Amino acid sequence: MPIYMDRHDVSETVTAEHVAKLHIEDIKIEHLFGCKGLTYWFDDQRKMAFCLIEAPNKEAIERMHNHAHGEIPHKIIEVESAIVESFLGRIEDPEKAANELAHVINDPAFRTIMNVGLKPLNLKNFKSMGNTHFQHLYESIIETIGSNDGNMVRKNSGSFLVSFQSVSRAMECAVQIQDKSKQFSNSNTLVTIGLDAGVPVTEKDGIFEAAVKSAQRMSNFVKGNIVVSTEVKSLYEQENPSHVIDLSSIRTINNSEGRFLNILIDYLDETWHKTDLQVETFGTELGFSKSQFYRKMKGITNQSPNIFLKGFRLQKSLQLLNNRKGSISEIAFETGFNSPAYFSKCFQANFGILPSKYLQENLA
């Protein structure tokens, strides 16, 4: 049976004890609707409650809540138990709470999300996990994440997605990873880190989708070794008035820049493969003048729109090559290049190797 997570925005007067009582009311009648409440989280600061429920569908959850106490969720999303556990650390009531009569759980689901990107500086003779220096860097990052109480959500040869309950530990982990990466200069790898924070259920359809996308985009597209949202910086400063970390070395993206970045990448995700996409006009299509768009692009990515679009397409082409999704000619046209020859020229200039040579040496 599917598992869902819902979100309740509650009033300022609601406490953890109130939410615990509502949870008990759900459990009393859940069988009538084919549901099973697994656990919940309550964020007293943000006045939000999140329920994890096994149910036949979203409607059954709404009917159960309405029958039990009348508190209808503001949003319900379908989730996977393993993913929930990787983000939040549990999929059932904490043991100490289960022994309490009222089952009070005052555990906020708010998390700091980190994306660590690993980009080879030159693909020539670079074989990811077969590269000894890269392997040592990779293992060092995993060890650093674990020592800072990070929950590994997802990892592959090109990135790590991590969840932290503490924003301070997340920031400290980011700095430690960058410090250690300097010890592995022979790994031929650029390490970039993005940090954002949020709750598991927003207006998006995926768990922590808003924070995950933001962290990934800051890591992948914003100029800087460590890039954080304004919220992460503010939370860190609140927890650490003496500033244990030198924040001047960390790039902070304000809300306006964050919105621009999301608008830009959302647009490119839909249009990057079109050969008739013109960098001279796609800024105006997003509602910006040519000069305004150029300034924003340079300020956030340190690249012109033309260079950024070309790099965006080349990264897509690399993904397709690694997944063996077509011939070089097919991939060239699919990623928006007018000719295979021009694509190969750009690929070599960006990655240090021809795509044909890369396939031959690295994917044989």
Rank of each mutant, 00 (worst) to 15 (best):
V79Y: 03
S242F: 03
H103C: 10
F42W: 09
S256F: 08
I72S: 05
H273M: 01
V227E: 06
I193M: 07
E257S: 07
G158Q: 14
L363W: 14
L121G: 09
N106R: 15
I27H: 03
F208W: 06
S248F: 00
L123S: 01
P108Y: 06
M171Q: 10
R90G: 03
L38H: 07
L264E: 01
E172T: 06
T13L: 15
A49M: 06
Q319E: 15
T15A: 13
V191F: 07
M114A: 11
T275S: 01
A49K: 04
S181R: 14
T335H: 07
S291P: 00
H243T: 03
F260L: 02
I300N: 03
S214D: 12
N66G: 00
H243G: 00
S289Y: 08
N255S: 10
G158F: 14
L195Y: 12
N225Y: 12
E62L: 06
I353D: 09
Q135K: 13
N240V: 07
S187D: 10
L22I: 04
V153F: 13
H136R: 14
V279F: 01
N99R: 13
L277R: 00
G299D: 03
F293N: 06
L247G: 08
K127I: 09
F282L: 01
N338L: 11
E237C: 03
K345M: 13
E12P: 06
V104Y: 12
L137G: 05
E25W: 04
R90W: 01
D44Q: 12
C173I: 07
V227C: 07
R295L: 04
R259V: 09
T144C: 09
N362I: 05
S81T: 09
K21E: 10
V167A: 15
S166Y: 15
Y138C: 02
A97N: 10
R63C: 04
N156H: 15
N322L: 13
H8V: 08
G258N: 13
R217I: 10
A210M: 06
Y358M: 10
R313K: 11
D276Y: 04
D196K: 00
A349L: 13
T202W: 13
T39C: 15
A102C: 06
T189A: 05
D93T: 03
E100N: 06
D179F: 14
L32N: 02
G311V: 01
N254Q: 04
G224R: 05
N306T: 00
R169S: 14
Q319K: 11
D276I: 02
I76D: 06
N323D: 15
N156W: 12
K21D: 09
N338W: 11
D107C: 05
H18S: 10
V279I: 02
I61E: 05
H243V: 00
L321Y: 04
K274F: 02
S157R: 15
H74N: 14
A60S: 14
M152S: 11
L354W: 11
